[in-house]
Design a protein around this nucleic acid. Structure first.
Lengths: 229, 229
DNA sequence: AACATTCCTGACCGATTGGTCAGGTAAATA
DNA sequence: TATTTACCTGACCAATCGGTCAGGAATGTT
């Protein structure tokens, strides 16, 4: 993977070629920041594709362009690195979750939420895949997230939806299964993006196709719960 | 994992304890059938949870209750075993796919298809998970299935849906995205079953809850494309 | 210039990986 | 009963795994 038996001061040259040009200011803190970012990005890619057990630290290091030992300098264990990746993903998820609130009517609120989730599936598909892998594996690392944060959020939103039903704003359906449907449908475009691309003559959805998908999903769900469009 | 340094003819005793009582007729063919079945079941479990790269043959053998060497006697390579598992899953998927046909009106056809897919998610969640893992990993093993069989099936069904639209039986939506929505929503109950159970106070959905989920999903989708219910 | 701190990495470790093989046992055939 | 065939498995293999470590290089501080 790397050369060996080379003279010692080739290190400098190797470092440059491995890490690329520096970003500007020469602080140590900047080096740290830069390397941690590269590692976290590579880790998200590899964890998304292979899951926690299937991912190898050497593969992550390779994709980040650094030796494995250097990866372990910044992130002592694979688990620690994985937790950092999961943390980032969950925070992004939380942000999207906030877009579903009670500030306006059901149609606007749900449209905004569905669009936010769809956009997230396009801009950050890796996060969704890491999450999917984690759930498929029965959430060995994030069970606490599910039991606390996600449960509280879900309870509050099902309550909100139930109020919409009680006020006659939407048809009576079980709120939980509406939420699951929105999650499933929007995240499908990230998790199953490869299948969708394959069925699209091997190409990723174009901007226009993406907009049409968003529109179709939103229309079916809103009309499905009795909101005219 | 297994004992060692034991007298040779303990083999008999070990074999019995490892494989349990024989199923009846003592054909060699029966032994083969029985062992292959046990291995395939264990493999589906482990591949579902860890994906291809994350799964280990020793773990599969352990779960099947046989030594790893015996697993490799029946399935020489991990890849071969994986292909057999994938084959089984795809055949089941094909069976479900046949339930979406043109023999009756859109409402009945789609209701039957959604129910079949939902039932499959409950009875065979592992298959769905193996498939999900494979797609997330960009389908290294089943790309041919996607490009040929799945593509042909999808093209024929989108054509059928488009005809329904042209005949004014359902509202004009892009057929592809309707299919994706059905796949996403129904398979979500298998792939994300752990998350759903966690949000259900840690319990799997009861029979009644399952029926309500099916009803909710079907209602929203049918109403969403303009079929009254 | 001297020193301290942080960054960096080849070489290495024990454990586990997918897979092999010699040599055994059990069943089918003759 | 003798022989062929299929089944079974402990022990082993090279490769890879996650992780360590000694020690050199680069940077920051004085």
């Amino acid at each position: 993977m790397h050369g060996f038996d080379q003279p010692v001061n080739v290190f400098w040259g190797k470092k440059m070629s491995a890490q690329g040009a520096s970003i500007g200011n020469g602080h140590k803190a900047a080096i740290r920041e830069e390397n941690e970012k590269a590692i976290l990005e590579a880790a998200e890619e590899v964890f998304a594709e292979y899951g926690f057990s299937g991912a190898s630290t050497s593969r992550i290091a390779e994709r980040a362009g650094i030796p494995k030992a250097n990866l372990h300098y910044y992130f002592p264990t694979k688990e620690e690195l994985y937790r950092r990746v999961i943390d980032n993903i969950f925070n992004i998820w939380l942000e999207a979750a906030n877009s579903l609130d009670d500030s306006d009517d059901p149609g606007q609120a749900l449209t905004r939420y569905i669009h936010t989730k769809m956009d997230l599936s396009r801009s950050r598909p890796l996060g969704s895949k890491v999450w999917a892998n984690e759930i498929i594996q029965r959430a060995p690392m994030i069970q606490d997230y599910l039991e606390v944060t996600l449960r509280e959020w879900t309870d509050s939103r099902t309550g909100m939806i139930q109020r919409w039903i009680d006020e006659g704003k939407i048809l009576p359906i079980e709120p939980r299964y509406l939420l699951y449907m929105i999650w499933a449908t929007t995240q499908h475009y990230a998790d199953f993006g490869h299948q969708i691309a394959t069925l699209n003559e091997g190409r990723e959805l174009s901007d226009a196709q993406w907009e049409e998908a968003k529109r179709t999903v939103t229309e079916i769900i809103l009309r499905g719960i009795g909101i005219a469009s």
